[in-house]
């Protein structure tokens, strides 16, 4: 129970104003470490799905899920098992690429990582990359040398593999 590890918490919440504040406020208030939080619509109308990446030992995680469950607008909370979970993050990277040669090189890397170039200007290329967070880190590392103008990452969103739902 003492091992500090990263947890993927999936929560179904009522799609209402203030619900993100209720959840985020809880984390600050109780001193829980939160790495990222994503919110979006779910398969059900009026219900949003939140994916929270948080660090802590088993005891902390138990408190996080219990305290989340106490929020009236939170319907369901589940700690997803990492090995049985698909987890993806979206990242946009704007790379400084003033010459033909640099652009060709960047495009090559992007292809290897199965990313896409979604915007080109005389000075920049903007890459879209979806994948596991460590893959995104690796691509960022590779193109860093050319000069990165901007990065926007969503933080991971996740769900259980197979037929299981929460």
């Amino acid at each position: 129970m003492d091992d500090q590890r990263t947890h993927i918490i999936s929560a179904l919440v009522l799609h209402k104003p203030g619900v993100l504040q209720r959840v985020a406020g809880l984390f600050t208030r109780r001193g829980f470490n939160i790495e990222s939080i994503t919110v979006g619509t779910s398969e059900q109308e009026d219900i949003a799905r939140m994916t929270i990446i948080a660090k802590g030992d088993g005891k902390v995680l138990e408190q996080i899920t219990k305290q989340l469950n106490k929020i009236i607008d939170v319907i369901k909370v589940r700690d997803l098992e990492p090995e049985n979970t698909v987890k993806r993050e979206l990242c946009l990277i704007k790379v400084h690429s003033p010459t033909e040669k640099v652009r060709a090189e960047v495009v090559q890397y992007v292809n290897i990582f199965r990313g896409r170039v979604i915007d080109v200007s005389p000075e920049t290329l903007t890459i879209e990359m979806t994948g596991a967070s460590d893959k995104i880190d690796a691509l960022i590392d590779l193109v860093k040398g050319f000069g990165i103008k901007e990065i926007a990452r969503t933080g991971p969103t996740a769900m259980s593999r197979g037929i299981k739902t929460i």
């Binding site: 005891k59 138990e62 408190q63 219990k66 305290q67 469950n69 106490k70």
Partner: peptide, 8 residues
């Protein structure tokens, strides 16, 4: 009655 109090 409050599960969050258990083990807190």
């Amino acid at each position: 009655i409050d599960p969050a109090e258990i083990g807190k």
